[in-house]
Design a protein around this nucleic acid. Sequence first.
DNA 1: CTCCAAAGTCTACTCCAGTTGCGTTAAGTC
DNA 2: GACTTAACGCAACTGGAGTAGACTTTGGAG
Lengths: 194, 194
Amino acid sequence: MEQRPGGRSARVRDAVRQATLAELAEQGYGGLTVENVAIRSGVHKTTVYRRWGSVEGLIADALGIAREEPWPIPDTGSFQEDLREIVLLVQRGFADPVAGPISTAFVTAAAQSGDAARSLHDFFTARHEQAAEVVRRAVERGEVPAGTDGAEVIRMAVAPIYYRLFVTHEPVTEHDAIRAADAATVAARAGVIR
Amino acid sequence: MEQRPGGRSARVRDAVRQATLAELAEQGYGGLTVENVAIRSGVHKTTVYRRWGSVEGLIADALGIAREEPWPIPDTGSFQEDLREIVLLVQRGFADPVAGPISTAFVTAAAQSGDAARSLHDFFTARHEQAAEVVRRAVERGEVPAGTDGAEVIRMAVAPIYYRLFVTHEPVTEHDAIRAADAATVAARAGVIR
DNA sequence: CTCCAAAGTCTACTCCAGTTGCGTTAAGTC
DNA sequence: GACTTAACGCAACTGGAGTAGACTTTGGAG
């Protein structure tokens, strides 16, 4: 990333990243400013502007870290249960008082900045690919027809959660999550998703 | 809304609304500023700030108008066809060079402003209710089990479109729309959505 | 150890979104 | 047709996001 990765630069980078996440968790995307991140991190404002450019840059960077850490793909032996687990994980993530605002901020930022949008796109591409494993296993067990598009099954399952959160602004319950997962399960079994 | 609805106030209101939509269509949400709307409409900046408050206020107002105009609910005689029509209508709406940016701006604005979020919520509540008509007819025909949640079927059908557009930032094709509609059709027939 | 340039700091500035206070216009009322 | 006041217009102001340029620190190479 930078030409001098060691020592001071690394400290600055980590301090800013941590401050960004903390601000996002407390204030959400609307309250995130370069100035506050600079103060909180102890790094000078101009430095943040030079290396990250803007609020969107801070978020794009934070997203890069988020993409690194893998998530637990369930393997219960049942396709329906696996899908339910995945969707519930998403739903609970947004309900979490710390992780929720941060995840929300990522989506909101991507709606405004091309950079953040690309980062988020890559993030979800990786997630879909990982989660599609449960579909591959279901195909092997004969629960789901061969040729089923695994990533698309995941999209179908989680989409209603995001739809409620970011489009219609309706509350989301665990029941909603389970229902969405089950609908995707039925559709996949019927061979509609290919 | 205002205590003096006639004459000048009405002209101001209409000019600002029209300018808002024009700016949104051309510039999108990112390029929408109160100042530009003021200039374009010929109304003074201060006046726009007083009556609409901010960019979000302009959008919340524009959404109010959008909610008024009803949309065509299909009645092809086939549940599957009806659902496909609805989802394709949504997909084509976003692909449209004029309506697309405006719709996108609504969603983006709602992600940041509580007022816009409430307006959008009401908007979609009305849409879901209207579109649920196709499910009611399907129940009458015996295509779908009684007790099926009509609004939820609509959510399931359109959610993947919005998910791709606003969350993962993936391209959306007509094929995606049809597949999503068909998946919702299968799930509804199976009695999973209630 | 020495050197040098990359990276960070600091101060002062610009610019523009949003506000304020006051004067002007015209909508609604009798 | 005169009066009241809601609503609009106007110009000057404020505050904070973002920039510019000179100066200082320090990581890394020889």
